[in-house]
Design a protein around this nucleic acid. Sequence first.
DNA 1: GGATAAGCGAGACGGTACGTCTCGTCTTTTG
DNA 2: CAAAAGACGAGACGTACCGTCTCGCTTATCC
Lengths: 195, 195, 195, 195
Amino acid sequence: MQDQLKKRRPGGRSQQVVSAVFSAAEEVLYSQGYVNFRIADVAQKAGVNETSIYRRWGTKEALLLEMLTKRAEQTMPIPDTGSLRTDLLAFLRDTLTTAQTALGTALIQIGLLSTQRPDLVPYRKLYWERRSAMMGVMFERAVARHEIQGQYDPAFLMEFTSGPILARLLISGEPLTVDFAARIVDNLMDLIQKD
Amino acid sequence: MQDQLKKRRPGGRSQQVVSAVFSAAEEVLYSQGYVNFRIADVAQKAGVNETSIYRRWGTKEALLLEMLTKRAEQTMPIPDTGSLRTDLLAFLRDTLTTAQTALGTALIQIGLLSTQRPDLVPYRKLYWERRSAMMGVMFERAVARHEIQGQYDPAFLMEFTSGPILARLLISGEPLTVDFAARIVDNLMDLIQKD
Amino acid sequence: MQDQLKKRRPGGRSQQVVSAVFSAAEEVLYSQGYVNFRIADVAQKAGVNETSIYRRWGTKEALLLEMLTKRAEQTMPIPDTGSLRTDLLAFLRDTLTTAQTALGTALIQIGLLSTQRPDLVPYRKLYWERRSAMMGVMFERAVARHEIQGQYDPAFLMEFTSGPILARLLISGEPLTVDFAARIVDNLMDLIQKD
Amino acid sequence: MQDQLKKRRPGGRSQQVVSAVFSAAEEVLYSQGYVNFRIADVAQKAGVNETSIYRRWGTKEALLLEMLTKRAEQTMPIPDTGSLRTDLLAFLRDTLTTAQTALGTALIQIGLLSTQRPDLVPYRKLYWERRSAMMGVMFERAVARHEIQGQYDPAFLMEFTSGPILARLLISGEPLTVDFAARIVDNLMDLIQKD
DNA sequence: GGATAAGCGAGACGGTACGTCTCGTCTTTTG
DNA sequence: CAAAAGACGAGACGTACCGTCTCGCTTATCC
């Protein structure tokens, strides 16, 4: 692995190109949104030839997919504040912040459009599972602290956490305040208590 | 209504064209999804010239908007089963059923993508408000029945109702079972009790 | 036929576009040669969108084919000077003049490349046959004038007429002088006398 | 020249690569024609890296040029049958045979396209001059045999020999029969007699 | 016999042209 | 008059070649 990174493979610029394209792609996705995401823009911003992008990724979607997968792999550290409630709040605050950026919107759009683009499904799953796993860790800690009992279904909890955020974001369009996050956490705590 | 259909405006086919286009559009939206929704397909399916569609609606989105608005106006009757819980369940079951169809998915996609297409925002709002209003009625009745007190925020409740559905639909991708609906209602009832 | 041209079909600019493209194509073929003939250049020079060209002709070759076919249909009048010898000389002089232009070269290139592009074959044939027919007329007249007897094979004569021109043009590259034309005609007259 | 080939320079495979590429190039030229001649195909067929070809020859045309030049250097022995007529016939028969192969067509194409590719001109000249020289030898012998007088212009005769072949090949497309060769020779003999 | 020069394999990359696919507009003809 | 019919302008997309470059390795020659 280290080898692989160290050993510069023939063809010189590969690394620079890839990272330049990723940054550019993120910028473009950020500024234009998914629908207006243009390969040409990415190429120009990355100072890379359009063809090189097509060569390596083939399609717009493939590029986005890979970029987002990479991105999904470098999420925040799992909060560990000492209480489940504050852990969840920290976690949600991060989610809200991300979701409010144009990039966040784009992420969600891609997730949504994956209905029509089966190639995007794996990314969606990956993202979802990573978040679920993070929640899982927070709950395990809470169990270890005897805050709660061992009964919970992380996937289900995820649904009741992300759901309202999505709803507000996609439909009512109202801002995602910290207050809102608190309300979601309250609800979540209720659900857990009941289980 | 009869009037509207009968009164042939000069130059003739207007009414037929409009309704043919609406049906065709719905079919196409149903079978192709929003992203692959093509005016050409609609025109062909409606047996109408493409230009006629552009003349009347201008854009793909405008057509969809009008079509969906019309559709949103003929929603289900508001359930009135005698208890808030069963009302909510009936309401949710309908939502789930719709959401699971390809058309439902398309509707959601449009709602989502309206971030990029400001012209779609009104539709999204309309849809959302109608559903909110329906919930409002159910709650009013519950208040009248002394099932609950007058304290509640319909918009907020909507978020906690639709949210998990969206989450499951868009991210985890798991099926929307009746069980799931029940769980949502349970959660909702809890929230209300607390208020 | 007149009808077809007169009856302006809906869609407006058709006629202008077609003729603008043909002129532009000829110019480009003239200035760039066949190998460097670019649709984009034609489009730009014609003040027409590239897509319109692709829509109507599909390929570079199809465009050239149609253009050249049209061109082949408007050849010079058949010389009628009173003697076969002078008729042939006039005919050849025209051929030489055309052949020396860049357009002529391009024509020949296309004829040649039709080996690889079967779609170009018809054009080649057409062109050849028209020239043959013209020679046929000149010979008929000579027969009528009792200059020669009825024995001759126009195709064969064409080969011995065009052949040396091609040879000089394609291989030795020496200029096509009037002298050269005379020499060819002399040879041709000999061949006829012998027949 | 021998030196250059013998002196194996460091770095090994040079010779194998060169000859493998030449064979492959000929095959490809044979099967695909000039227009569809692809370096990539040559490389693959030769079991050699594409880059190696570009390194050594720079361009497609340069490769072809060198290959064809080499080929042109190994032409048939000059016929010496005892009479000019039969010498010419033998010579032409060879020409016709070559011309009819796909390779022959390719050769002609290259000669033709050299209008656009000045780098190919030398090859064309070389080929032409070699053939001219061969004819020259045949004529010298005829003069020595007192078959003909010393008056003739080899280049001119070449034009009247190759010309009809080109014409038939490029335009009428009819097959190059032995009969046709005879006819050309007859014509040629006439021309000589006259000179 | 080890340095070293020449050259090859491998993998991109820049660049140009091509042809396809939609969207939305425009113009003419026809019922 | 409005719909039908047929292009057209615009612009993104993805493909196919060409020729260039860089790195790592191998091989013969030369000191």
